[in-house]
Write a protein that binds this DNA or RNA. Structure first.
Lengths: 219, 219
DNA sequence: TGATTTTGACAAGAAGAAATGTCAAAATCA
DNA sequence: TGATTTTGACATTTCTTCTTGTCAAAATCA
């Protein structure tokens, strides 16, 4: 399979060819892990998807687990980057918090493989992967923190840093997304977004967070 | 190993002996999955822990995955039952919501194997396990719903049923617990409980949920 | 006691995968 | 063109595991 892969090693430098192979393997890893799961995917299979052979696998990755770690890391990195962009360029007419929510929902719905890797395949594989997950979660929580700080100006950042509120919020989004994935993306995106928007609006109108803070949280 | 296991098959009926073996295997499964993980545990190992041989494994379980499913199911069942008991017998002087929170935190801290199976090992193994997880999560969300209904009397149950609030709440607890587990149960239990109590108190004082409801959520 | 059931130890087949190694063909370079 | 590098196919080795099967010893029953 993949017999007609172009092989020009003169025009393209060696280093670049290696990284192109690496990219192919990453894409194949997402495909394999995201559809058949980590345990259900063999290195040979992944190489087949990438149109490469095992030799090139071990050129870029120590083992299958290492590939999973890199795939996961890339997904988190992409998501966080998109999120940061949304937060920084407040140009969008949409509420930044809602724009974030939309980003997550749309990303996962449009590529369920991402959802599977991000939420299901990365857990309980090995201590190294657990560490990567821990780091990924930390980044996501950071994004949530920045989002709250943006959506509720005047919020005490120190408070956000210390409290479990942001972790809780991230967890809420997390489980809602997980269930949505498991339910096959039903109800449809727009319904979910409407509900989220309504909830956010009510939270604002109730002055929930600001009340909690200014009501003297630590007295 | 386990050479001195008592073997009286006359005094104890056949069916009972089978279920005793089954129980031993379930305990061994929790031990294995909860310390070395699902992928890192072999059937032979589990049998060794149970003091039984492979023949008896397949007497009670179709395969390793089946054992994981049963272990997980048992853990969820126990937790839910403890929770229901706390909720029904409102006798405890403690706030039922906090009693629930305490139950979860204490259970996981006192037996981290439970935490590992419940939160990490059960994901991404197979469609059958995913289904079990889905059902387990559903039950947990149900408990959260009942807790909120108890803690905030006058709450519109229909609203709770329909909204994503309960899922979000369950997710919040979920991730907070996961991180706590991953951080090696630091900060200590009492700190976590204090923070949770403070948060709950503030939510009450802000009249958050009731405001959201009575403010006309669906207008 | 002698027969029978249950049990534990272990063999062994079947299967699959991880990771490394070999080698000739294809592509490229000089 | 001829030499060299890169590449793909595949063999191989070494494991590991699941799962079934065999068989004698121990416990029990009649």
């Amino acid at each position: 399979m993949a017999r007609d892969v172009k092989r020009k090693y003169g025009g393209i430098g060696a280093g670049r060819r290696v990284s192109e192979r690496r990219a192919k393997l990453l894409a194949a890893g997402l495909q394999a892990f995201g559809t058949k799961g980590f345990a259900g995917s063999s290195v040979k299979e992944i190489c087949g998807l990438a149109g490469l052979t095992e030799r090139y696998f071990y050129e870029s990755f120590a083992n299958k687990e290492d590939l999973l770690r890199c795939v996961y890391h890339g997904l988190v990195e992409d998501l966080v980057q998109s999120a940061e962009q949304i937060l920084k360029s407040g140009g969008s007419r949409e509420d930044p918090a809602m724009a974030l929510v939309r980003l997550f929902f749309e990303t996962l719905r449009d590529d369920p493989r991402i959802a599977r890797v991000l939420y299901f395949e990365v857990l309980g594989v090995s201590p190294a992967i657990d560490a990567a997950y821990r780091e990924g979660t930390r980044k996501m929580i950071q994004v949530v923190k920045e989002t709250v700080a943006t959506a509720f100006p005047g919020m005490d950042e120190q408070f956000l840093e210390r409290s479990i509120i942001t972790t809780g919020l991230a967890g809420a989004v997390n489980l809602i997304l997980m269930r949505w994935v498991l339910e096959g993306f039903s109800p449809p995106l727009e319904t979910m977004l409407d509900e989220a928007a309504l909830l956010l609006e009510k939270v604002r109108r109730a002055g929930f967070l600001t009340r909690i803070i200014h009501d003297g949280f630590r007295d």
